[in-house]
Each structure stands twice: as C-alpha cells, then as structure tokens.
C-alpha cells in the first residue's frame, strides 16, 4: 500500500476532538450514574424487604399456636376488600416499577449516547484474547491504552464465538459476536489501570481472557500513540513489499 494512504488515515478516522471536549465538562459519566442509581436501588429494595420481613416476623410471633386444637380465625374478605387487596398493592408495585423504569431509562440513555469526539477503537475478540486496532493502525493485544479525559468508543466484533468485553470499573459490558457489530463506550477520567474480563462463556480459557485498560496522561498517550502508529506503518510497509 502507498505510504501516503497510511499517513492520511488518522485524519479520516479521528474527528477533531478539541471543540467537542472542552475540558471534559458536560459529558455524562455512566459509571458514576450507575453507582448513584445502584445506591437508590438498594434503598428501594431494602425498604420493601424490611417492611415485608417485619410484617411476616410479627405475624409469626403474634399468631403462633397456643393450644393444640386451635385454628385460625381469619376475617372473611368482602368483595370490596378482596378487590382492594389486589388492586391497591398492584398499583403500589406498578408505581415503584415505573419510577425505577424511568430512572433506569435515564441512565440507559447516557449509556447509549456516545459523546462527540470519542476515541474510536476497533476491537476483535477471539479465543482468548482482545485485539485493539487504533485509527492510525496501531494494534495492541489485551491492553487498551487510552488518554484520560476523553471518552472511548469500542467498535466490536468477534472472530469466533460470543465474548463479552467487561470493564468492571467503568460499569459496562457488551457482547462481541461474529458477523455483527456492537458498540460500547466509557469515560476514563483519571490515569490508572482497570481490569478487562470476558463475561460470556467462551470455553477453556474463558477465565484467563483478561486484559487491561491503561488510562494515560493525554501527553504520554499522544507520544505513545504516535510511536505505535509509526511502528504500524513500518510493519504495513514491510508487508506491502513482500
């Protein structure tokens, strides 16, 4: 391939991020949203659980059998009470359901709306490794290097079976499948390392299909990215000459 083509590729595939990013403000972070919703969820289900359990425990103590021949003496429910006991709880549960669904939908929108200017990396999964290809042709295996403060979009497919790219620290996973394209994005804010795990059973080394997301300082990333791109160009040239 022509060298000029390679050099031009990044221009095409990397939309200029500067304007859209403006210091990372205004980009919602789904991971933080997940933690918030999870806490609200815990309060919600704990409350319901405690009410149910407390009522049950009280009944268990209050209505224990005192004489061997004793029988229950339940009140007969009239039609109104019977219907009420079905309809009122049903509406209470539905109210909670719709409340939670609305909350969940709000967060879902964040998860599904990719911010402008995300770094788009192609991911090919295969038994049992992750291969990341950057817009400039740089390729890494099991190691996704990204700059801090810029959202990352993965465009995923699989070469063999179904895998699922899971980054617990960013609270996100999505399956990668042969013949289909799926997307996943996350927002690394600070430099650091995060575990990548496979979350869809894929055979012998499923549990060893581990990788890392390495979040770098933007300058350090830029330097690495240029060097890795040059190496990829050189490799492609060698291949082309053969």
């Amino acid at each position: 391939m022509h060298e000029s083509l390679r050099r031009l590729a990044p221009v095409l595939l990397l939309p200029a991020p500067a304007a859209a990013l403006a210091g990372g403000e205004g980009i919602p972070d789904p991971a933080a949203g997940w933690d918030r919703l999870w806490d609200e969820m815990l309060v919600d289900i704990t409350l319901i659980g405690v009410v149910f359990a407390a009522v049950t425990a009280w009944f268990m103590w209050r209505f224990r059998r005192r004489h061997p021949d004793e029988e229950g003496c339940p009140p007969r429910l009239g039609t109104g009470a019977a219907v009420g006991w079905a309809v009122v709880p049903a509406f209470v549960f539905m109210a909670d359901d719709f409340f939670l669904a609305a909350k969940g939908w709000e967060l879902w929108q964040q998860y599904r709306t990719v911010p402008e200017g995300a770094l788009e990396v192609r991911l090919d999964s295969a038994m049992w490794s992750w291969t990341y290809t950057y817009p400039n042709g740089a390729v890494t295996v099991n190691e996704l290097r990204v700059p801090a403060g810029r959202p990352v979009l993965l465009r995923m497919t699989s070469r063999d079976v179904v895998h699922s790219h899971f980054i617990p620290d960013f609270r996100v996973k999505e399956d990668s499948m042969p013949g289909r394209i799926t997307y996943l994005w996350f927002y690394p804010k600070r430099p650091g390392e995060h575990v990548v795990a496979c979350a869809e059973y894929c055979g012998l080394l499923h549990s060893r299909m581990a990788g890392k997301v390495i979040v770098m300082e933007p300058e350090a990333f830029a330097a690495w990215y240029r060097a890795a791109g040059r190496r990829a160009d050189a490799a492609a040239r060698d291949e082309g000459e053969v």
């Binding site: 939309p15 788009e120 090919d124 497919t157 013949g179």
Partner: peptide, 12 residues
C-alpha cells in the same frame, strides 16, 4: 468486511 463494518465515514 468484518474489519470495516461499523466504520464511520468522515462526514466532512
């Protein structure tokens, strides 16, 4: 195909 499917063509 699997390499290019999903690629966004530069709108500019």
């Amino acid at each position: 195909e699997t390499r290019h499917l999903g690629t966004r063509i530069d709108p500019d």
